[in-house]
Amino acid sequence: MSVLIYAESWEGKFKKATFEAVSYGARVAASMGTNAIAVTIGDAEDASILGKYGASKTIHVGGVSTFNNAAYASIINQVAANQDANTIIVAATNNGKMIAPFLAVQAEAALITNAIALPSSTAPLTVLRSAFSSKGLVKYQSNADKNVICIVPNAIGVATIEADGTAEESSVSADASLKAIAPEKVERVSGKIALPEAELVVSAGRGMKAPENWNIIQELADLLGAATACSKPVSDIGWRPHSEHVGQTGIQINPNLYIAIGISGAIQHLAGVSASKTIVVVNSDPEAPFFKAADYGIVGDAFEVVPKLTAAIKAFKANN
């Protein structure tokens, strides 16, 4: 028996969410008294580095270039069968979320998505997951012998160990009868930090008054190495791209730090960001509901407070 982790890479590099998934898988394997094995598909850096996160072995499957969720699932399942793995861990990235249901159907496994904690029991597998847009938590129990767990990035954290992993090539190939969409073009928003995996996020709302005022938001984000986000109305009126819209009907995020500037804190906005570990709110209205969900707050005009905050962080960075 073993636990298999899908180690996703992007342009040949493992994603941070992958290190997290491997650490998670290693801990699940330990609680089952078995090994964690990682599988990576397509271009990948030196696969043995996953040893540091607890993979005893990483299997590389080459010969695949573009993303194909059905083919990837077929490859992962064949590796799982070869390694006698009944538990498969996938990070809930946009691609991971497309692979996971195909894994479950092909392997006749139960699928538990949105997992935010290690299993509280491994037989039957019982996992805590987030639900109701972070307003609730539900413990799910699997009724199947095989399981696929899809974990929320940044919810569990990365753990490193002092160990070496080995790397191995495998030549399994996907079942050719499986159908999938055929990617033709990828448009990467270059140089920017992807919101779903960002550890730090600077977000702004209608309080910014106009799109040309976003320079102070961008400046703060750049200084922190943070991703930028926005409230729904701001993306609806086109001040910011849809890809930045966070909330119940946008992207749900849980960064270590979420700075909300000129956002009132409506329930639908909070639903997408309340799982953030630390929340800072800057709002001119002391009655803004967001303050109730914040760890730290500054009552003040964003146009005055944000440049000051940027300057203070600059000074802090210079001294640290």
Binding site: K135, V138, K139, Y140, S274, G297, V299, E304, K308, A312
Partner: peptide
């Protein structure tokens, strides 16, 4: 049915916000 929801709970409520004066962002 391959899964069963066995227990529901709510996330821990946040502690009260710490307000910081706008002239003391440091």
């Amino acid at each position: 049915k391959r899964t069963t929801a066995v227990e529901y709970s709510k996330p821990e409520p946040k502690a009260a916000v710490k307000l910081i004066d706008k002239d003391n962002v440091e």
